[in-house]
Nucleic acid binder design. Structure first.
Lengths: 212, 212
DNA sequence: GTCTATACGACGATAGAC
DNA sequence: GTCTATCGTCGTATAGAC
């Protein structure tokens, strides 16, 4: 692993911990025990580091989102997609903690973030359609659009809200709760299977509460 | 209106427009055509301005949230509460745009914000209970908790998300869409009235899209 | 209450030696 | 590639005159 990679890894760690605005180039250099001059040799300040971190995030997220929903033949597979998406967001949570600030500070990222948002929306939509095809869900079109937007909202901000209410919440717990929230949103459209699903969720929730 | 009030009003305007982090004490002074020294006579920098703005927000929000849900005897009244809450949040949107950053920069606000969040949660809960009493909604307990959290998420972050996707979106449109999301979330629990409500919403949505 | 002037510190950024 | 040293900019904050 080269210095360049070390810088990226350290930046990600520090910014996830303390927020993008409170981490300066010097902080990153100190953390790595290198000089600010050295850091500037590799990246011309945060203006180059942030987009480089976004590259990593975008790349991995695109891989996740491109996995075809047709391959997901069970309802459990669908929840697993949510887990993976949320884990990826967790890994780059500094970004989501201050979306507005980061995008106006690094405008180059605006179109790229919007594209990612659209990709997420499309994937959610396709996954729900797949659940309909599998006979798991029955849902009217307008309500489906609403459900998609709500899941997108959960993806984007749920981890933030949990962190605000309890800043020591673990990744595992926060992500689990997000997925649970998504699953529960689907219950009304599961027909008579909804009740069984709901009971299963209650058990799951209980198990998670105890072990967390 | 005294200089002190002018400073608060200008701060709010500027920060809603450009974000808290990009507005300095000098910016505020320039905007008002007063000297930085004068500003510092009234407030010892942003460290005193931000909490003062939060005072205003907290005060108005508490009034809104304390209005008893028993007084809301029609379903329309409930949506109006949502409108009022969201308009208040819109007026202080700079705060919600970077919740994490502002709370870690002004930690004094953390317990106060958490209290406000709890108050919102309680009000939402009571309003849904009231809808149940009115016979408008039928909903199982676990699903009700889920619905409450989802509405809280909409209150807290929907305006942000809309702003990210379209930074020129008007207050009216963004707020209207938020309320529409909330209404739609309730449809599955409206029983046979759900379809009628849904049709009404579609008309409403169409009318709004055309006039926006 | 309001102004001018100025000091201080933090961060971003670069030059030049090794 | 990495270091030390240094500069410029900007935001915060205060002193003292009016």
């Amino acid at each position: 692993m080269k210095t360049k990679d070390h810088i990226l890894a350290a930046s990600l760690t520090l910014m996830n911990e303390e927020g993008e605005t409170s981490v300066s180039s010097v902080d990153i250099a100190n953390y790595l025990d290198i000089s600010p001059g050295n850091l500037y040799y590799h990246f011309k300040g945060k203006d180059e580091i942030i987009p480089a971190l976004f590259d990593l995030f975008e790349q991995e997220m695109q891989i996740i989102l491109r996995s075809s929903p047709q391959d997901l033949t069970s309802i459990e597979d669908q929840w697993i997609v949510s887990y993976i998406v949320l884990e990826e967001i967790w890994d780059f949570r500094f970004f989501y903690r201050n979306l507005d600030g980061i995008l106006s500070k690094y405008p180059i990222l605006i179109p790229r973030f919007k594209r990612l948002l659209m990709a997420k929306r499309r994937t959610i939509h396709e996954n729900i359609d797949q659940l309909v095809r599998l006979g798991v869900l029955r849902i009217e079109n307008l309500l489906k659009d609403n459900l998609v937007e709500q899941i997108l909202l959960i993806y984007t901000y749920w981890l933030n809200l949990r962190h605000l209410e309890d800043n020591s919440v673990s990744a595992k717990t926060a992500i689990h709760q997000s997925v649970f929230q998504i699953m529960t949103l689907c219950v009304p459209y599961m027909g008579k299977n909804g009740h069984a699903a709901l009971k299963g969720m209650k058990r799951l929730l209980h198990a998670n509460t105890v072990t967390k």
